[in-house]
Simulated assay, not measured.
Amino acid sequence: MSGILPGKRASKEGGAMSSTNWKRTLLVVAALFTIVSIAGFATGQTSTETKGVVNAKGQILSVAAVDFPQFQPYKVRTESEKKACDDYGIKYTLLQPQQVTLEGYLETLTNAINQNFDAILCEPWDYTAFKPVLELAKKKGVPLVAVHQKYPDASYFISMLYIDNAGYGGSAADALAKATGGKANVLFMMTQADIPNQVIIRNTFMDTCKAKYPNIKVVDTLFTNVNTVTAASALEAAIKAYPQIDTAIWLEGATVGVGVDVAKEMGVLSKFRVIGVDDPPDVIASIGKGEAWGTFVQNFWKQGYEGVRNIVDYYTKQPFPKETDCGVVLVDKSNWNNYLPTMWAPVAIKGKAYSK
């Protein structure tokens, strides 16, 4: 296995993801446009509750989500949305774009807005590209919930359930310092240099280390393009060029497993920490085997369930938080086989108060 160390570096500032980078970054999935519609009714309820929440026309609420469930974190989120809709007795429709591109997502979201769903959950990661579609939703009076991303203009959404990326970066630095005695040589593996949330995580990690852990050094930052071959080649070249690297932190979840494979092949796994993001099954299994060191799991369970609950509360005129930091949990050898209760613990399921 050989590769050339990319010369491109992550900038200190991050901008919105361009459609060109998005196309180049992610695999285009040639799947048929998928619509999964589920009308769920919670069990053990009275006849009034079983009817479900209704809109102004007296019809059962119909909620849609635009998402890519073929990827693990989004699968988690959509399953949590389905559970919430089942609990509240409302209809759920999952709209999966035909292609994993920015354009494909925006087209699907536009179609959803024009189908007159009662509310839609979406992830507005490109601030500029999403604006015209958000304007359309506002014009048509379709309530939107933003998940995972905190959009700069909150007026487009009835609520936003996001990850505090600065908090993520600081927590990652603290966790690594605790495990290493405050000494490590780190390589970051990002999707691209201009993915806003990844840039914030990396930069906050570096700022935290500079202020608190001067012996944790970021040696380099490389880009995977969410491609396993690219990731493997880049990592191998980096380890050869900088043999002092003892920790690789991934900020995209699709190629983390490659890190373990490369470290094994190069004979450095025993002294090399592979740190992932979210909970792909292969990474969780690798942690259980003592191979990958750990992974920072973003709470997509809370995003999905509470996003739907916010919609229900909006229609039933109940108070709900307009902004929610969903949080991140470190999964490592100590909790790899029992972390799911931790992810569900802060979720405000039906009948439980929102956390403050």
Rank of each mutant, 00 (worst) to 15 (best):
C85W: 09
I349Q: 15
D126R: 13
S355G: 10
A263W: 06
L95G: 00
R309E: 05
V268G: 03
T204C: 01
Q244C: 00
A166G: 07
G307D: 07
V53T: 14
T208R: 14
A16N: 03
D278G: 03
I158Q: 06
S270R: 12
I4A: 03
A84K: 14
K140L: 15
A64N: 09
V328H: 06
V53M: 08
A10W: 00
K210F: 08
Q298V: 02
G58A: 10
V145E: 03
N197C: 05
I287F: 11
K178V: 07
A248H: 07
D118M: 05
E306A: 13
E49Q: 15
I38T: 11
I35W: 08
V328S: 06
G7Q: 11
Q115W: 06
N55K: 07
A172P: 00
Q303D: 02
V142K: 05
M17H: 00
A254I: 15
N335H: 05
F68K: 15
T255N: 14
I60A: 13
E103R: 10
F33H: 13
N111I: 00
L102W: 02
A193T: 08
P341D: 03
G141D: 01
N215G: 09
L32W: 08
R273I: 02
S2C: 00
S80M: 15
V328P: 05
A64D: 09
K217L: 12
S270Q: 14
R77H: 15
V218L: 12
M206N: 08
V260W: 09
R273M: 10
E291N: 12
L106R: 01
A42T: 14
S286V: 11
L330Q: 05
I275A: 05
Q149N: 06
V76R: 15
K317Y: 06
A154I: 13
M1E: 02
K333S: 10
E123A: 14
C209A: 10
